[in-house]
Write a protein that binds this DNA or RNA. Structure first.
Lengths: 194, 194
DNA sequence: GGAAAGCTTCAGTCTTTCTTGAAACTACAG
DNA sequence: CTGTAGTTTCAAGAAAGACTGAAGCTTTCC
């Protein structure tokens, strides 16, 4: 039985990210630990986390290690206290940015390099030729998305938020850009699926 | 022992998406089935998939059901053949779009509604007050990202690709937009992380 | 109607991943 | 040094999830 306990609102939030964790390939424990740290007023140490979530101390230790590997928590030390305290970045945009970066490094980059190396092989059959064609399409899409994401990410948080904030304006600005650069936008063409 | 077999390039691609599947919360089987369908020249039926991947017929059936629920495969019928044939959209951008939409519906929307309902509660303590503050930040970020994503998604594939293709130009267009709408952009400010 | 083809469901088995307590490690204080 | 507070590692048990074969549907064809 815990001596410290979480208020209902906080508990609900933590539980939700536990569930979500599973759907995301992250484990439930890690999801809950991060949710807890995220909504906490102050940095927490491992014992506090273990007690509030009723996990074993070692489980918390592993979860925190994982979160550190993802660069999602920052380590703090309180004067006169040898324990390690953990907190999440104050800026939610920063969290999003780091998450995206890590995910990219771990999942997108390996996929891209697999695709690149497959594209260098000489196809030995029609099946391989067609497979390469599809892989090239996938590679180009991912590559394009990533290049563009780089650009957005390079903007400072405020500017990026501003870009988001533009909302529907994007479309208008786009056509304006066409006029500026002189490339006439092609419209109306609906490609028929083969 | 299979009577039909996959060429090396195709096998490698399929294997990669099997691995990736795990990291994504999708199961390995489903990842491989989709990879196979994606690089295939022609639509495949369940028996062919089961044989090529050496899965049980029932496993394939479940995987395909899952992929249909995600709207990632299309069902085809060949004249004079009662079996169901499956294929992926020809356009990779379309696949990306559907994937994003479904993920949003299944993961983002429930999170947003959890956050909204939590924000309606009256906080009973400082801990809850602060938790709500953080939840509001998270809610606003997600909401903003989604609204903006809507806009991009609403563009036809070609236009969206064009937007991506703009690359670094985005930044310039942005400041242009500021001039148009009359809001002066703040520049040069690099916020120091707290 | 009923046989056959094709698809789905499901209970049980197998595999993988989580979680834990105990032991080992580390760094510091006295 | 030695003791202690704090953290990490690890082997084993527990839980979750994936996979299968067999049985059961459904549809088509004769």
């Amino acid at each position: 039985m815990p001596t410290a306990t979480l208020p209902p609102l906080n508990r609900q939030f933590v539980a939700h990210f536990g569930e979500m964790g599973s759907k995301w390939g992250i484990n439930r424990t890690v999801g809950q630990i991060y949710a807890l740290i995220f909504i906490s007023e102050r940095a927490l140490n491992a014992d506090e986390i273990a007690e509030l979530l009723e996990f074993s101390r070692s489980n918390v230790s592993m979860g925190l290690k994982e979160l550190q590997a993802w660069r999602l928590v920052q380590l703090r030390h309180q004067p006169g206290d040898r324990r390690e305290y953990f907190e999440a970045p104050a800026d939610v945009w920063e969290i999003f940015r780091v998450l995206a970066e890590e995910r990219r490094r771990r999942e997108i980059e390996p996929t891209l390099s697999m695709l690149r190396s497959a594209l260098l092989e000489s196809p030995a059959s029609d099946a391989e030729r067609h497979a390469q064609e599809r892989m090239r399409e996938m590679h180009d899409l991912i590559d394009r998305l990533m290049k563009w994401f780089d650009d957005v990410q390079r903007l400072a948080p405020e500017t990026a938020m501003q870009l988001m904030g533009m909302g529907a304006t994007v479309t208008k600005v786009l056509s304006l850009k066409d006029r500026i650069t002189g490339s006439a936008p092609k419209k109306k063409k609906k490609p028929a699926a083969g």
